[in-house]
Design a protein around this nucleic acid. Structure first.
Length: 793
DNA sequence: AGCCTCCTAATTTTT
DNA sequence: TTAGGAGGCT
């Protein structure tokens, strides 16, 4: 089949009428993707030239628009496949786009667009131009583990107490510097002083080490390409000519380095189409700059802004609730989602006594929804999700679901390729393909145990360094010079010999890479190590190793496998069985479920206290966007809940309902009454108390405290005044919580725990905390503690 | 070298 | 509460 382009259209015009009619039909069939688009989507798809910002709210069909745009570029002949660059953040998104583009085009187009993650595309580029940043094109990509081990060596060498200054912390810092496109030379002095005044220095050393190791970390992939583009205009021009049209997904998540890379590439032709939603920017803590999307019009003059606001996912109540919450943020680009679907259930809101009860209630609710006893059609478990703010919240659900036998799946746990045994195995593979991979050598030299402890490894390192050799070669030399004795020497010789043989086998090629991998794992004693391991995880690890070997089948050789795996660490195995999904709010972005539960909406937990402490209003706004993302995951049923008491790090703490609850527009919310003894009618706080009867005094007092909390009272008031047209949702948490404290009063602080007020200065208070000592804190972060909350029970 | 015990710290996570 | 790391003991 031929492709459709301008010439075909031109030819069609000169054809006899009958054939012209046929051509027209074919034309229509060639662009069926345009038919299913609404006017806004269509505009975003058809505006091919110049900068376009597609502001796509949740559930407004942005992937559809994006893929249709690619199809349109191709079918109109505006671009050949390899002239299109489409970038995503995750491999999953890239896969999805690839398959959808293929679906739209059928067989019509030959060739493939450059479609991939920022990192995978940068790797391709960097392998081509590695020498420009003093690397060889076969550089290895370090994972976080390698990175931290390397940093730790530098930190120790620098004489820093790595307990006070953990390597992780520096790894995070360096990462954030790279996200902002700061090379060691460009690092602002204000930043270089971080990490015990040595941050900048160690950063430079680290980069130097990477160069000698012929390695990169993830941040480098982008940063090196930006450097190359800036220093070698000829290279940049080549890519500018090559990629005539650029598309970017999730633009609100781009960091500075990614932004610079994009700007450089688009600088000549400005044919860049960025798709994103400022309201769904939830990765600021990882370097994403909402500013990038907010500034688009200034960055690209004459940019066309298209807003996709028609939502195809959720009911009007769900959208109304989400819109209400997000409207509390300042400086938004501003979109208003609407839907043509009317009716549906309101967002349900329910308070619980504690986290366990919340889990119990949600479990029951899921079961009744599943069986259809809720007066609705039964909903399958696959159609339901529980979205939490922090992963430790998952635990109460897992406990509960295990005990009632409700099948669930946790999404976003530790990933396959990050598991210990997989990384060990891959370190063996790395050494087989590149014997000078020192980090891999360090990792497995004593795994399984070979009697090669710190002392032996140090000897190898000294030998290698003083002779300018890799660790493996250093080890060989050490053996030759008899620098190591006894059992260690014998074992090391065995390992070195093994690595030589496996490596040779891989080069000769009369064994498949799968056989070589199996041989290495077998002869090194690695498999045996787990077979002899009596811990309960061992069988699982052996299974994983088998799975790893199986994964090799899809690759030509070990090298190809390793290169692929460095960037594609995900492993979503689409499971068919019916299970409720439990995941974090972050993990839920981009997904949708008919029924969604949003538990744990409590001040301090959500919005997260830490976020607010560290990033102030910016942090709070990001939390609010997280709330918006959560609500908009739901198609038909959204249930928000909070608990008055929660065990945090073993200590019972009480909490107020989240301020986000106040921000839900009341006409879209239905307030449910908690079940059990608290459930007798829509009672007042005192009814609630009465219902408690003469149980344990502490407990009763604690309950009284919860149900007298401003948040709970507000809920009660709201329930009482339902139907009234008052729009104001009442005073915010801050306004209420800044109530007057007095010296000597017992208070509670989310971070510091319980304490006693020792002095007052306006809204700042001196508090002597039981655990955290004397602190000066702002009143709004404190709540009054009664004796009840004080006593763990 | 390996096991055991004590101490500390504790969001969100992709590549 | 609990998990992971570090340091100490055998």
């Amino acid at each position: 089949m031929t492709s459709f382009n301008d010439e075909d259209a031109f030819e069609a015009a000169s054809l006899p009428l009958s054939q012209r009619a046929m051509g027209a039909t074919m034309g229509a069939r060639a662009a069926p993707y345009l038919d299913g688009l609404n006017p806004a989507q269509r505009e975003a798809v058809e505006t091919l030239d110049g900068p376009v910002l597609m502001l796509a709210g949740a559930g407004t069909g942005k992937t559809k628009a994006l893929t249709s745009r690619i199809a349109h570029l191709l079918t109109t002949g505006s671009a050949r496949p390899n002239e299109i660059l489409a970038v995503t953040f995750t491999n999953k998104a890239a896969r999805e786009m690839k398959s959808r583009v293929a679906g739209l085009l059928g067989e019509a187009i030959e060739g493939v667009p450059w479609l991939g993650t920022f990192h995978s595309i940068c790797v391709k580029q960097l392998r081509r131009h590695a020498e420009l940043v003093d690397l060889k094109s076969n550089f290895t990509i370090l994972d976080t583990d390698d990175q931290i081990r390397l940093l730790k060596q530098l930190i120790v060498a620098e004489g820093i107490d790595d307990k006070r200054w953990p390597a992780r912390m520096l790894a995070g810092l360096i990462d954030s510097w790279k996200n902002r496109a700061w090379t060691p030379e460009a690092l602002p002095a204000s930043e270089a002083g971080a990490y015990d005044h040595k941050g900048g220095k160690i950063y430079a050393q680290y980069q130097e080490r990477l160069r000698t190791l012929n390695a990169c970390d993830f941040g480098d992939l982008l940063l090196h390409m930006v450097t190359i583009f800036q220093q070698h205009p000829d290279v940049l021009e080549q890519y500018q000519r090559w990629f005539r049209y650029i598309l970017v997904d999730e633009y609100q998540d781009t960091n500075v380095a990614q932004y610079m890379w994009l700007r450089l590439l688009a600088a000549a032709h400005k044919n860049i189409c960025c798709v994103g939603d400022d309201d769904q920017s939830i990765y600021g803590w990882r370097g994403a700059e909402v500013g990038n999307i907010l500034r688009f019009e200034k960055d690209f003059e004459g940019a066309k802004i298209v807003k996709l606001e028609q939502n195809y996912r959720s009911t009007e109540h769900i959208l109304g609730a989400a819109s209400g919450v997000i409207s509390g943020n300042k400086g938004r680009l501003g979109k208003t989602l609407f839907t043509e679907s009317k009716g549906g259930e309101k967002v349900r809101l329910i308070g619980h006594w504690d986290g366990e009860e919340e889990a119990r209630w949600i479990g029951d609710e899921i079961e009744s929804m599943q069986s259809g006893t809720r007066g609705m059609n039964p909903i399958g478990l696959n159609q339901m999700a529980i979205l939490v703010r922090a992963s430790h919240q998952m635990r109460s659900f897992e406990d509960r679901f295990l005990s009632i036998g409700l099948p669930y799946r946790v999404i976003g746990g530790p990933r396959f390729y990050e598991r210990l045994e997989i990384r060990d195995a891959m370190a063996y593979f790395r050494l087989i393909t590149s014997p000078s991979d020192d980090l891999a050598f360090e990792r497995i030299v004593n795994t399984p145990k070979r009697g090669l402890g710190d002392k032996a490894v140090q000897k190898i390192q000294v030998m290698a360094r003083s002779n300018g050799l890799s660790l493996l070669d250093g080890a060989k030399l050490l053996l030759e010079t008899k620098g190591l004795g006894g059992k260690g020497a014998k074992e090391l010789a065995k390992l070195v010999d093994g690595l030589d043989r496996w490596g040779a086998a891989a080069r000769i090629g009369d064994m498949s890479h799968i056989e070589i991998a199996e041989m290495a794992l077998e002869e090194s004693g690695y498999t045996e190590m787990w077979q002899n391991d009596k811990t309960p995880e061992a069988p699982g690890r052996l299974d994983n190793l088998k799975e790893l070997v199986k994964a090799l089948e899809q690759f030509e050789n070990l090298q190809g496998f390793l290169e692929h795996i460095a960037l594609v660490m995900d492993n979503d195995t689409e499971e068919a069985s019916e299970k409720v999904s439990i995941m974090t709010l972050h993990g839920s972005k981009g997904l949708e479920f008919p029924a969604v539960f949003l538990p744990g909406w409590e001040e301090g937990l959500f919005p997260s206290q830490r976020s607010m402490d560290e990033s102030g209003v910016k942090g709070l706004e990001e939390e609010r966007r997280l709330a918006y993302v959560g609500i908009t995951r739901a198609e038909t049923l959204c249930t928000i809940s909070f608990a008055g008491n929660r065990r945090v790090y073993g200590q019972w703490q009480n909490a107020l309902p989240s301020r986000f609850i106040d921000e839900l527009p009341e006409r879209h919310v239905e307030i449910l009454t908690p079940p059990g003894i608290y459930g007798h009618q829509a009672g007042s706080a005192s009814d609630m108390l009465d219902a408690l009867g003469g149980s344990d005094l502490h407990e009763a007092a604690a309950k009284a405290n919860v149900y007298n909390s401003p948040g709970w009272r507000r809920l009660q008031d709201r329930q009482a005044s339902r139907g009234s047209t008052s729009s104001g949702m009442g005073v915010t948490i801050e306004a209420q919580a800044v109530s007057s404290f007095s010296v000597g009063e017992r208070v509670f602080h989310q971070k510091f725990g319980y304490g006693e007020i020792t002095a007052l200065e306006g809204d700042k208070l001196d508090v002597a905390f039981d655990k955290a000592g004397d602190k000066k804190v702002i009143g709004k972060f404190l709540t009054a503690a009664d004796s009840a909350g004080d006593v763990p029970f």
